[in-house]
């Protein structure tokens, strides 16, 4: 807590400025989409656009992605590595990641 205050108060900015900026700017959310989705990008490419033989995720139908992930988790679908990956995440995490990629261009 004290450090955060130091950051704000330690600068020579007028406190009036603080009041104005509060009025004009809603605090941005500090989380950029689910962090779990960041793990996917290491193989599925920047923005989940796909890479080489690895399919893209961005803009895919959410129910298709959710069905595939559920099948990977249950070992009901042939897989090279996604069965091993899917079992590491909770259903809530998978739902958030699916929504994130489905909502991308």
């Amino acid at each position: 807590m004290s450090r955060r205050h130091g950051l704000v108060l330690g600068r020579g900015i007028g406190l009036a400025f603080v009041a104005i900026s509060i009025a004009l700017t809603a605090p941005a959310r500090s989380q950029p989409g689910p962090l779990a989705a960041q793990g996917c990008l290491g193989c599925h490419g920047p923005n989940g656009a796909g890479s080489g033989g690895i399919p893209g995720l961005a803009g895919r139908d959410p129910s298709e992605l959710a069905t595939a992930m559920a099948a990977f988790r249950a070992n009901d679908r042939p897989a090279t590595i996604m069965n091993r990956v899917a079992r590491g995440y909770t259903e809530a995490e998978i739902a958030a990641v699916v929504a994130y990629f489905a909502g991308m261009q």
């Binding site: 205050h5 406190l15 009036a16 509060i22 004009l24 700017t25 809603a26 941005a28």
Partner: peptide
Amino acid sequence: MTTLLRRSLFTASAILCAPALSRAQGQAR
């Protein structure tokens, strides 16, 4: 002044993301 100070502390997070803040004015490093 006291009220203003308390308010500014309470919403300190707002200032760090305020786009109006330039680097020189104190973006978090």
